[in-house]
């Protein structure tokens, strides 16, 4: 067992890393909203699900790929991937903004506590996943493969697959853009201000509703990107996919300390690797249990997550 594990260590690690980066992006959707509103945005998992379908629409319907098409190469490949990524991000981002307007805004104005928005979010999740379920006839949908999944090279014994590489690099870039946005731009500063003290921020003339909309938009953009990467890696989706990934990503956000952007990064990575290793040793059916037990242990010893809900500059 251990010998096997050592043999496969690097290929497991690469798979775990790219899964981890997908978790990071979804976790950002949870953590940004939590930072600003102190609210668990339950509908984020369905935003992710919609993102995976947006990707398939571009690859299958716009560029007319089928299961037997030839792989795209060169410029056309990057065009396809770029279009799909941007489309998935936009669809998810705008949808996330709309969800906030429809389901949360009124409740927030009424100062209604924590639970009413939660139920509202559950309602929205049901509407989204059920609509997609009806449209897809409850069947999983396969994504045509536009890109040949070749190996870029060897690292020890493990092949470095091109899709994993794309995921890790693009997610890193997106993350860097997000950090810059939150730390350097006016809107980012406003988001941080609202997250630290909404009342003081309002008194300083910040348009709270605008900031919250922007937060949902940014969180949705990241979650949509995760939808694209997921489709690229697993080439399969369904109306029910949001739940499982959403729970895992939410766990990742908490693991790192919810509300903390860097926490989402480390939490996502830790969870992706942990889940992959745990599946190897215990079988995939126990991975969720392992993850939750680790979460309980972490919270029990470090109640604010591994990196804490730090009220620092990076918090959004």
């Amino acid at each position: 067992m251990i010998g096997n594990f050592l043999d496969q260590f690097w290929s497991l690690t690469f798979g775990g890393l790219s899964l981890g980066f997908i978790y990071i992006l979804i976790a950002l959707g949870y953590t940004m909203v939590y930072g600003v509103l102190r609210m668990i945005n339950f509908a984020n998992s369905e935003i992710f699900m919609v993102g995976t379908f947006a990707t398939i629409i571009i690859i299958r319907d716009l560029f007319k790929f089928t299961q037997v098409s030839e792989y795209a190469t060169g410029f056309r490949l990057w065009l396809i991937l770029g279009t799909a990524l941007i489309f998935a991000m936009l669809v998810s981002g705008i949808l996330s903004m709309l969800v906030e307007m429809v389901a949360y805004r009124r409740l927030r104005r009424m100062n209604s506590g924590v639970l009413a928005p939660l139920i509202s979010a559950i309602g929205v999740s049901m509407v989204l996943s059920e609509s997609v379920r009806i449209l897809t006839d409850s069947r999983p949908v396969a994504s045509p493969r536009a890109m040949e999944k070749k190996f870029l090279g060897q690292f020890f014994d493990a092949g470095i697959r091109i899709d994993n590489t794309i995921i890790v690099i693009s997610a890193l870039v997106l993350f860097a853009i997000l950090i810059t946005f939150v730390n350097k731009t006016r809107m980012g500063k406003a988001i941080r201000a609202v997250s630290m003290n909404p009342n003081a921020a309002r008194l300083m003339g910040i348009n709270i509703d605008g900031v919250i909309s922007a937060t949902f938009l940014v969180g949705g953009l990241m979650t949509g990107a995760a939808g694209f990467f997921y489709t690229l890696k697993y080439e399969n989706t369904s109306a029910f996919i949001g739940f499982e990934l959403g729970i895992a990503a939410f766990t990742a956000a908490i693991l790192g300390g919810i509300g903390n952007i860097k926490g989402a990064f480390y939490g996502g990575l830790a969870l992706g690797l942990l889940e992959t290793y745990a599946s190897f040793f215990l079988g995939t059916q126990w991975k969720a249990v392992t993850v939750f037990i680790v979460l309980v242990l972490v919270l029990y010893t470090k109640p604010n997550g591994l990196f804490g809900e730090a009220l620092t500059q990076t918090r959004a």
Binding site: V102, A103, R106, L107, S120, G123, V124, M126, V127, S131
Partner: peptide, 14 residues
């Protein structure tokens, strides 16, 4: 059915 159910939840809570 469940779609309508979800809508009812959102509308009622609001």
């Amino acid at each position: 059915r469940l779609l309508v159910f979800g809508l009812v939840l959102v509308i009622m809570m609001n």
